[in-house]
Design a protein around this nucleic acid. Structure first.
Lengths: 187, 187
DNA sequence: GTCTATATATTGATAGAC
DNA sequence: GTCTATCAATATATAGAC
């Protein structure tokens, strides 16, 4: 029988939590092993380096984010409802006590000299987000493809912009306001 | 006769450059003094701590940002031209070789447990930016105040959103696209 | 696989001479 | 005000016993 939770999983979940709450650089290996309750050598048994831990953190955060979005949205939400649900999703996360904004933006802005691998994961995540918006715009849009693409960019920027405002102001108001605007844009 | 540049100024400009290029935590006191060409004790003669250096960096960046914007915009630009100029300003900065995105967002996202003072400077900066947009919207807007405020938020989110996209993708295309959209919104 | 103990480098900050 | 020398703490990472 396998232990639950296994050491590797405990390390990864602890590191993920700390990376998000404090930032990557502000989180030391020592704090991770202490809070995970394992020895330092055990961490390096499972992860090559701290950077390796970051890659796994980003990979898992990416898949979890979309899983949770899917679980959050009403089963048959598509088109307009799906896009508006995206703002509700952001609002829900922002309201969850200790939100620090988008985890991927956090890492990208903290580490301007990011490794190629880490940046690729982040860009891939945001690309999938844009695809999500685009495909739902196309469902409802009866305009030319060019207009649909422009609306996609507008909604995406509105979404990212309100996330920034919300994080800097420590308030959900920018998200609420952005959703109202999105509602009109999608009429 | 005073030296030029004085030690304090050399420290601050070196620290500012490194904070922006590498991030705050990734920049050590040792690197700052080495590149500034002064002794460590001299740094602590002028600045109480590294956090103190951060506060001065943010304060100066704030005022310089608006100075440079003013200098960048055509003398009589107001209303529509001023807002579109804002996107050109962002584009110009993004094209300047080593751009790492908005300095204030960088700090806020890197340091989620920011001191009250630092966060206040950042929020103040973004508040001034919103005021800039709002006042220029009001010049051209003949709608109700409520609509003007909504348009202000939309433009602000569009501006911040394209900054994020541009930084993550290492491309100016999101800024160019956002300006096109802004142009239509302001018609 | 997990542990203790250690290695080496670097961190932010200070004491005290000049 | 500027310097050299040094501080204690912490960083990431590894060696080797069990």
């Amino acid at each position: 029988m396998k232990q639950f939770p296994k050491a590797k999983e405990r390390i990864l979940s602890t590191a993920s939590r700390l990376f998000y709450e404090q930032g990557f650089q502000a989180t030391g290996i020592n704090q991770i092993i202490e809070e995970a309750g394992i020895a330092k050598a055990s961490l390096y048994q499972h992860f090559k380096s701290k950077d390796d831990l970051l890659l796994e953190y980003l990979t898992i955060s990416d898949s979890k984010w979309f899983e949770h979005l899917k679980a959050f949205l009403p089963a048959k939400a598509d088109g307009r409802a799906a896009i508006l649900g995206l703002f509700d999703y952001r609002k829900k996360i922002a309201l969850a006590g200790d939100s620090k904004g988008c985890a991927f933006i956090r890492v990208a802005y903290e580490l301007p000299l990011l490794t190629h691998d880490a940046l690729k994961i982040i860009q891939s995540h945001k690309s999938k987000l844009k695809n999500f918006i685009r495909s739902n715009i196309r469902i409802l849009d009866n305009h030319a493809p060019k207009d649909a693409e422009e609306l996609t960019e507008l909604i995406l920027n509105l979404y990212e912009g309100c996330g920034i405002q919300s994080t800097l102001l420590r308030s959900v108001e920018p998200i609420i306001g952005a959703k109202k605007i999105a509602k009109k844009l999608l009429n």
